[in-house]
Design a binder for these strands. Sequence first.
DNA 1: TTGTAAGCGTTATCAA
DNA 2: TTGATAACGCTTACAA
Lengths: 349, 349
Amino acid sequence: MARKQNVTFADIAKYTNFSKTTISRYFNNPDSLTEKNQKIIADALEKLNYQENKVARILASGQTEFVGVIIPNLFLHYYSEMLDRILSTYETFGYKFLVFLSNGDADTERQYIQELLAYKIEGLIILSHAIPSMELANLHIPIVAIEREDAHISSINTDNYMGAIQATSLLYRHNCEVLFHINNPTAKSIPAYGRIEGFEDFCREQQIPHRIFLHEMKDQTASQEHLKEILSEIEADSPGRKKGIFVSNDTHASILVNLLVRKYGKLPEDYLIVGFDDSPASRNAIFPISTVAQQIDVLATEAVKLLVEQIEEHKNSKHTPVSEPVHKMITPVLIRRETTERDPLAEND
Amino acid sequence: MARKQNVTFADIAKYTNFSKTTISRYFNNPDSLTEKNQKIIADALEKLNYQENKVARILASGQTEFVGVIIPNLFLHYYSEMLDRILSTYETFGYKFLVFLSNGDADTERQYIQELLAYKIEGLIILSHAIPSMELANLHIPIVAIEREDAHISSINTDNYMGAIQATSLLYRHNCEVLFHINNPTAKSIPAYGRIEGFEDFCREQQIPHRIFLHEMKDQTASQEHLKEILSEIEADSPGRKKGIFVSNDTHASILVNLLVRKYGKLPEDYLIVGFDDSPASRNAIFPISTVAQQIDVLATEAVKLLVEQIEEHKNSKHTPVSEPVHKMITPVLIRRETTERDPLAEND
DNA sequence: TTGTAAGCGTTATCAA
DNA sequence: TTGATAACGCTTACAA
């Protein structure tokens, strides 16, 4: 009795006296059946408690509706929010995501890609940076990169240069006399390099005294130490002058604010600070930090949209080489909070 | 010429003069071939540039190596770290994860489950709470819940009760004269209810004056307002007495610390605070916050391990009902930071 | 150690 | 509008 594990089209067909083909049509093109027959099949599905098998469908149709995602980690809020938004596009496009975390080892990443290909993903969204875009392009599948080196593949990036201009000009408009930029050492091929470029260009054009600090700040304690040093340098550098500091990420901006507040019991008025990312760290800081918000929602949505377009193209023209890479820039949004818009009243209550 | 899209076992077989079976064996049981023949096949794979097709393998073998994950979101650090750790178990167990985000709507969640079943997942890890465990148990597939109602399914939970005891007793040992607990209203069926229970039991046993605040605090601003009110109540309640506050999560604990520091320019000595989760909010707060750390890594690893065990069982005994639910508790770790271990020297530098 | 042949549960191509 | 039949690319008895 308990021979068959799963109810299949064959069972439904037998039960309803239709053919398997007709059952298949019920799912893929129901209007080609009479309403009456649709109902018969629908009832049979209920009665036999049928459950879809998409694996079989994939094998026959070739459409997996899988998209691969390779992302560095989910510890950084930036990445986890991005993945959140990517996964949410399921409602719109129906693609399922196979997610791999890559710590940065290229060979591991290659292995993940092989695994993804074995599952016949229709496209790939990549945020990790271990594998050069040249190599990725040679996979000849639709690929969209987000904020990484993208010379040979399509990509969606934040307009980091514009972001830096927005941040820097805000500090400038608030009459800062000296401007500082704090960042990690960044390769020119990476979109985030625009943050350094934008800062520098703006300062040069406006002829404002400025200085850039580039330090590798891996962990929490190292960052804290470095930022402490940078702060003393800044203080020594420009005592009494109004200082504007553009920090390349909110975490470090927040550490900076904390150092200042712990030292002075409040945020000194001659320090204006702007971070980057609009991460929780900036919102929840003791003095909420002005920041350049990447529109993560837009980045994610556009990335999936672009990928889906490429997937469609790819289906229609299997033999033509994947079309020329498309690069799209998303303008970030400047968010003004207390570290630049000090309300003098707020300090007294 | 360009007829065949993919190189298949048939092609390899033809090329090497073996049968498809032998090619299959090369992948699944290579030792059953002579070394010489292994080499021949390996070379052919190279030459023909063969690429695995796991979809076909799944259909034939029934083993998808897919595990479904339903998780509320990736905005909260707790969830994204959990997913990070879950995905990382790929290295150990090889299971691939199909992840769905569920905002809390039961019907949407049911739909996701149907989709997951259609992809023949071998098991399910569930962190969302929309669907009662009773209904989940009726799916008759291996399921492990993490920190949610789990009456009828296996689960891995933090020992919230112990966590609360650890937090409360720390405040007690620091000679707090009044203890407070701030939390959201929590159903008794949810593991996190243990935080309230533990606090209350400890206070009762030690006969310490205490009070519990239960407020729905959805968004940032609402929380801020509520916490401000709670703070004035606490101040009115016990002026001059040493106050210990156990907050059910680090985000709210951080807001509390910020409110205090902004008011007094420092963290007043008569306030001791302990949070929950060891989230970045606690580490990066202006005064790093003592907290009860859930061992997310352990929770995730144990959840996958338990699930894999159940999957193995399930394979061996398809017909027996899924075995009795197993519940496992993970003890959290108390982390002492500045909000309880004030270093008097640190305040003066 | 290797091969034959029958699945796995769909979709796709022709016909009717 | 419906059906027969051959794919899809692999695994798995059963044989040899």
